[in-house]
Amino acid sequence: MDSAHNKSGQEQSPSRRRFLTETIPAAAGALVLAVGLVEHQHSAKALPPYAIRPPGALPEEKFLAACLRCGQCVRACAENLRQDKSRTTAPPAASAPQLGEFISQLAELGENAPLETTVPTLRLAEFGGDIAAGTPYFIPRISPCRMCEDMPCVKACPSGALNKKMASINEAKMGLAVLVDQENCLNCLGLRCDVCYRNCPVIDKALTLEMQVNQRTGVHARFIPTVHSKHCTGCGKCERSCVLENAAIKVLPLSQARGTLGSHYRVGWEEKEKAGHSLIPEALQLPTRRPEEKP
């Protein structure tokens, strides 16, 4: 067998030997990498719930195909904040500080933290995290979107990952605010905190206070902060301003904030309006039968 092997080895042309010793291992190595890449992407497709994309961002799966990871939106966001003359606090460092600095900054400020933060909204995901490296995001509790009317981040995006067709920042759907804790929210407890409501840039449309009877006292009212998805931009100012230690109202990515009706579901009253009449025939008039009556 050994001699046969040698013989065949001697007969191998240089190109055949090269194919066996170089091409095949190289192709195999590349295939291993490709499988790893695809596997990694598969496991990391969803955005973690604490991270929100900038205004105008395409849906996450399309965003990952479009965003070139250049960070120009992050620069535009920081630049806009630096130039904002209405700010009373000291200008931030030109480059975005690291996440740890943000959090310690927030902790230092505590409940006295001003709503208009001193740090830019957007940051770029680092290597090794659970957000695609180099893509922009923000954490509403730390730095909500400032809802700039001229949308500098969208303008700065070269690729179309942030959609320039959006006419106004009020059309943004960065995420959706959800009153996740209806037990600890002060308004739900019967107090008139209202801070999230007062800070909503689309007040009375995106966020309303719905009056209910306070069942505990029986004589008071509760004003429940209620989010309306049609108008909520997901800017996160409500979450940022929530006075609780851990916010009761949180902005979530749309995929996690919303349910989806089954595609076969129809809402009766909408169908009725569309058709101009009820879709089901008039209720049947069944003859009343009583035990004492005989047909």
Partner: peptide, 28 residues
């Protein structure tokens, strides 16, 4: 995958981005 997938790992842009923004584990 429908994603610019190499940018998850590309050391060329990762290191530069790390210097310009924040490095994270890019130094690894």
């Amino acid at each position: 995958t429908g994603s610019i997938i190499w940018e998850w790992f590309n050391p060329v842009t990762m290191v530069q981005r790390g210097l310009l923004f924040s490095m994270g584990f890019g130094w690894l």
